[in-house]
Design a protein around this nucleic acid. Structure first.
Lengths: 132, 132, 132, 132
DNA sequence: GTGGTCTAGACCACA
DNA sequence: GTGGTCTAGACCACC
């Protein structure tokens, strides 16, 4: 528990560094990675997945550019507080494109909204507080 | 009314063929393009935007692969019924990644959900304020 | 005239990609590179200076992140309009550190200011308009 | 009054030893540290900020190489006279790069010069409004 | 033909 | 021991 679980698919059409970036973002959203959490060293991560360390490096650099992690030579990669970061300008546009795809295929608005709600709920770190 | 308005930004970092595909998808979701609507010939479209014919072609081919349009030599590109197309397998995953990005940056779940709702509402073609 | 002149020192302690970035920034400030100007292809530039194309690539990527150039796969690197880009937040801090170094070494404030003025004048693209 | 105030940000992307060096340089420019002023022992400084002793050491060594302080075993680190130090050869070049960055982003020359003037004024320790 | 991605391995800077 | 830089060469995506 608390260990970072990544799943890299080398055959996928989405770049490996993007997959790593995406999953770390999800881990932060999920609460599995909190402010101050350390990420595995790039070379360790690369070795674990049988990829080149430059690829892992690029994923970390992307996250650094987005302000989600902080990189220092001696201390490694550390998650930074998720609070002060505003949404990027094109975020709504990307959401629009993605949701349009569902609607264009015949999904109803409530249906799509429900899917979004389910995804968001899955990020909620509070696991059923009412189970006595 | 009903004319397709595309807006291609050659300076954007998203590929041109993707921009065309995205906007056609949004037009379908919006109702501006309905089942049976004709799309402009690729050569016309390419000429209009000063882009390569192959680029326009690629956008249409993408849409054909997604099952959203039908291409035939004589009749050109025609939008197909949106009801028959199931969501692609990775759609939820892409939504998950996109919403995670917002949450990781500190947005609250209701806030994100509201953004989705606004986007979905903007697709609704029926502004049926007076249908009792 | 109008050709981009770069000067790369492989023995310097400042990274090569930074040298390239700096000189392109100066060329833009100078007016030698204007909005819409094309930059040499990364591989060509790399070959010209006997460096690896990845190093040239990194310089271009830096400039892209700063919003000073635009990269597209087919069309190469193009300078973007210098107008809408706000100064980065830490710019004043960097100026402060640099000017403090001069003052700490005994330079007077007017002396330092004059040096700045000289540098800024050298960027001025208007070359002595009074030579008939 | 006269006590040296340092502000080390371990999260910043600029190296810690550089931050220390920069702030001491600014303190000298400011007049907070004068010729003959003693600097805190590196071990004290390291302990105060919870940083490695070698890191503090490196900052002092940098300043010694620049001729701004003098190190001796018994007396510790002492600021040396600011009048005797010429500007380093690359100083103008660094100013040029930094000011070019502002101009390339659309700032006007007077605007940039004014920023420099403001910074230089902030170094002026004599607010001698009443010395006739 | 352009930039982008990935791999492989060396050496350096920082803590 | 961490991340950063540079090199070298392969293959892919876009126009």
């Amino acid at each position: 528990m608390g260990t970072l679980i990544l799943n890299v698919d080398l055959a996928a059409d989405v770049p490996i560094y993007q997959q790593i970036r995406d999953q770390i973002v999800e881990a932060i959203a999920h609460g599995a990675l909190k402010d101050g959490s350390s990420l595995p060293p790039t070379r360790t991560l690369a070795a674990d997945f049988g990829i080149n360390f430059h690829t892992a490096n690029k994923a970390y650099d992307l996250l650094r550019q987005e302000g989600l992690i902080r990189l220092s030579r001696g201390t490694g990669a550390v998650v930074t507080a998720p609070a002060a970061n505003p949404l990027p300008a094109d975020w709504t546009g990307r959401v629009r494109t993605l949701l349009a795809e569902a609607v264009a295929r015949g999904a109803s608005a409530p249906e799509v909204l429900e899917a979004c709600r389910t995804v968001l709920d899955s990020f909620n770190p509070k696991q059923q507080e009412g189970t006595p």
